[in-house]
Design a protein around this nucleic acid. Structure first.
Lengths: 209, 209
DNA sequence: CTCATTTTTGAGAGTTCTCTCATTTATGGA
DNA sequence: TCCATAAATGAGAGAACTCTCAAAAATGAG
């Protein structure tokens, strides 16, 4: 699934312009993983990509533009993998547990992805909006299936996303921890109206692998 | 309770050195409120205080030092006000609701405080530690009173704090909203083992004023 | 292979801050 | 009020980046 140079690897047959563009995006992701989104400099990105500083400006107007595109691509990629795994899952509970678990695992094991997602949630409203939208779909399904007792609005999504983000941040810092991931799922289910016991049972039943 | 220039106001009889120091700290808080902790420049702080740039360095080694001291003072001030209001409150549930409600109200109405607390939670581990410690006390009380069904560790504190921070951030952006504040309390109680109904009842019963 | 076109290059101009320090100004105890 | 000491000042050196552009190199269609 994941790889060090995700986008560059897929750029083999493409014209030079696209290859360089994708190399810059890959480099951006790796630099963010090392220094965080705030401290990532344009000169870091070009240097890490083995390109001249000026090359950056042939492809992007400024840092924000490449940050947004990189984060968008990571988010889409993660959503694709999660959706793919959930193709056959119907229950909203199972879907929430699967999606949460997978998202955290991807974000933490491929820590470059985690750093980008965390940064995007904080700094890139457009990407943040897409991520919240993705969460919303399965929460809505839970309402439709009469499984969740929630008021599904922007604020609720915000609270759910903050639990998720906090868990990812901690696990990037202190290492992957399946127990923390499970507890995050439980906490999210509790906000959806589950008792502690029911949440634990649901997580145990639906955690993938 | 709160004021535009909290620390400077209390510095009337003090020696010059202390007055300037406190003026710089007040200025820092106001600059953070305007531009956020990341973008606050030392030159902004001195300019806003009506002092020369060089004066800063008579009092602090660098930005981090003044940021930490400013955040620490705000955190202590908020904790003092909250503790004071809770002197006579025994139940951990009532205390959690009171503390959460008050903290959010202070952070949002005096938005300079909110910006500092949010910044500190993200960037200043020592202040963050103190805030989590403050939260921990009442959660421990809830365990002792057999009211909360939780595993009280660093990770749990992290999750609670993230709900609080998300609520403050939203309300600073979109304006104070008692409903959001109440829902934040409910969500925290849900993570402590309350059902939705019990959480709502507890918040209704214990919300101050 | 050729060569018009596209892309890369990297030196450097411009910007924005931080931090220093010799000098000026203010403070407050006697 | 006086004046030794403490504090404030602000010009400027230096560091760290961003962004530009004329020149050099690479690309890929014919």
């Amino acid at each position: 699934m994941s790889s060090q140079a995700l986008f560059r690897d897929r750029s083999k047959g493409l014209p030079k312009r696209d290859r360089t563009r994708l190399a810059l995006i890959d480099s951006t992701v790796e630099v963010i993983a090392q220094k965080g989104m705030d401290l990532a400099k344009i000169s870091d990105i070009t240097e890490h990509a083995g390109l001249a500083n000026g090359t950056f400006y042939n492809h992007f107007a400024d840092k924000d533009e490449i940050l947004t595109e990189a984060a968008q691509r990571i988010a889409v990629e993660m959503a694709r993998e999660i959706d793919n795994e959930m193709r056959t899952v119907d229950s909203a509970v199972a879907r929430m547990v699967t999606a949460t678990t997978r998202a955290i695992r991807m974000a933490v094991s491929e820590s470059a992805w985690g750093a980008v997602i965390i940064g995007a949630l904080q700094h890139l409203p457009s990407v943040r909006g897409d991520i919240l939208q993705f969460l919303k779909a399965d929460l809505q399904r839970g309402i439709d299936q009469d499984l969740f007792d929630i008021e599904l609005d922007e604020f609720f999504l915000d609270q759910i996303a903050s639990l998720l983000a906090a868990s990812i941040r901690t696990q990037i810092d202190t290492g992957p921890d399946p127990v923390k991931t499970a507890r995050t799922c439980e906490n999210i289910l509790r906000l959806c109206g589950f008792t502690r016991a029911k949440a634990q049972k649901a997580v145990a039943a639906h955690t993938p692998e």
